[in-house]
């Protein structure tokens, strides 16, 4: 439904216990229907980007993670990584501080089709080695 935002994960899955939720999340389908639809991203490809989180915007309609990654020429490229809404992420076990500025992380993203540095979050591997879905 075009008028609708991202698909919320079913509340039947009540992951209120965050500690276990981060593990459980690995087995969940975490649908991400962006409210502007998925069309801006290439959903057939997941690109892995390693870098340091420069900023996180824990806001609606989408959480954004900004990731500084080496550009291979001695500089950095800043990637804008769109995530689900805070509410949907929290329902799958995220907290507002699951990803923090300064964290070295590895992010799998569906790249923007227009070639800009950014994409839609598929998963993030946290500094503690855990990988969680977006």
């Amino acid at each position: 439904m075009e008028d609708f935002h991202q698909k919320p994960v079913s509340l039947h899955m009540r992951y209120t216990r965050l500690a276990s939720a981060l593990v459980v999340t690995l087995f969940l389908a975490c649908p991400v229907l962006a409210h502007h639809s998925f069309a801006m991203f290439d959903k057939n490809k997941v690109v892995t980007v390693k870098g340091v989180v420069s900023k996180i915007e824990w806001t609606n309609p989408h959480v954004f993670i900004f990731l500084d990654a080496p550009d291979g020429k001695g500089g950095k490229t800043r990637y804008a990584v769109e995530c689900n809404s805070p509410n949907v992420l929290m329902r799958t076990g995220w907290k507002f501080n699951t990803v923090k500025a300064g964290d070295p992380v590895s992010i799998g993203l569906y790249p923007l089709r227009n070639g800009q540095p950014g994409g839609l979050l598929d998963s993030v591997t946290l500094p503690n080695g855990k990988t969680i879905k977006g």
């Binding site: 439904m1 075009e2 229907l33 639809s37």
Partner: peptide
């Protein structure tokens, strides 16, 4: 659920 289990569902 009108969306089903798809990770990237089409608009219903």
């Amino acid at each position: 659920d009108p969306y089903g289990p798809e990770r990237f569902p089409e608009d219903p």
